[in-house]
C-alpha cells in the first residue's frame, strides 16, 4: 500500500521491505501460472498469471513510493513542499497503485465467478475506473472497496473450494486470502491508529507467505 496514512516512525522502511517480499511471491506465482498457460494454452491460467503480476506490480509501486517518501522526499521536504511536486508524484503513484491492485482483484473475481461475457467484464473494469475516481477524492476508500471485493466475491469462492476439496493446499489458499482481506481492513482503519497500519502490513505479509508455503509444498512432493 502507499503510505499516505500515519505510519509509526519505527516502521518507516520496514513496510517497504515487507512489501518487496510480497512482490517476489506474487511474481513467482504469476510466473508459474504463465508457465502452466504455455503448456496448456487455457486462457484462465493467463488471466490468473496476469492477476498476480498486477498485484506484484501494484505492491512494488507502493513499496517504492513509500521508500522515496520516507528516505528522500521527507529529508528534502522544504524544497519539495516549496514546489509541491512531491504531492503530484505521490498522488499519481497512488492512483496507479490503486488501479493496478483493483484490476488484479477484478481479474480474480472474473475467474472465481467464471464470467465469460465480455460486456460484463467491461462493466467490471468500468467499476475499477469509477472506484479510482472515488479514491482520488478520498484515498482511504480504496482499502474499504478492496476489502469488500475480497470478502464478497473472492473469499467465498476459496472457502467453497476449501470445503469441496479438503486438502492442505485449498485450506492454505483460503487462509492466505483471508489474511490479505483483513490487511485491507486494517489499512482502512489505520487512520485511527498507526499500530493498525503495522498490523495490516504484517497480515499482508502473512497472506503472501502462506501462498509461498503452498507453492513450496507443491514442489516438495
Amino acid at each position: 500500500m502507499v503510505n499516505f496514512l500515519p505510519s509509526p516512525a519505527w516502521f518507516y522502511g520496514i513496510d517497504s521491505a515487507l512489501e518487496f517480499i510480497a512482490v517476489l511471491i506474487a511474481f513467482l506465482i504469476s510466473f508459474y501460472s504463465f508457465h502452466i498457460y504455455r503448456f496448456v494454452g487455457q486462457k484462465k491460467y493467463l488471466y490468473f498469471s496476469l492477476s498476480f503480476f498486477l498485484m506484484g506490480f501494484a505492491l512494488c509501486l507502493g513499496a517504492v513510493i513509500n521508500y522515496l517518501l520516507y528516505f528522500h522526499w521527507l529529508k528534502h521536504s522544504a524544497l519539495y513542499v516549496l514546489v509541491h511536486n512531491y504531492l503530484l508524484y505521490y498522488k499519481i503513484g497512488f492512483l496507479l497503485h490503486f488501479f493496478l491492485h483493483l484490476s488484479a482483484f477484478m481479474i480474480l473475481i472474473i475467474l472465481c465467478l467464471k464470467i465469460e461475457d465480455k460486456k460484463v467484464m467491461s462493466l467490471l473494469f468500468l467499476f475499477v475506473l469509477l472506484a479510482v475516481m472515488v479514491a482520488e477524492q478520498n484515498f482511504i476508500l480504496f482499502y474499504l472497496i478492496s476489502f469488500l471485493l475480497m470478502v464478497l466475491y473472492i473469499l467465498p469462492y476459496f472457502f467453497k473450494n476449501c470445503r469441496e476439496n479438503r486438502t492442505s493446499n485449498t485450506k492454505r489458499v483460503f487462509l492466505a486470502f483471508l489474511a490479505i482481506s483483513l490487511s485491507q481492513l486494517c489499512f482502512f482503519f489505520s487512520l485511527w491508529s498507526d499500530k493498525i497500519y503495522a498490523v495490516g502490513h504484517l497480515l499482508q505479509l502473512v497472506g503472501y507467505m502462506v501462498l509461498l508455503v503452498n507453492f513450496i509444498s507443491v514442489f516438495r512432493k
Binding site: 508459474y32 502452466i36 503448456f39 496448456v40 484462465k44 491460467y45 490468473f48 475467474l111 472465481c112 469462492y157 476459496f158 467453497k160 473450494n161 476439496n165 486438502t167 493446499n169 485449498t170 492454505r172 489458499v173 503452498n214 507453492f215 507443491v218 514442489f219 512432493k221
Partner: peptide, 17 residues
Amino acid sequence: FVNEYYKMVEFIRGFGF
C-alpha cells in the same frame, strides 16, 4: 509436461481453477 503434471494440477486445485 508429463513429469510436471501432478505439480501443476496440485497448484491449480489449490486455487480451484
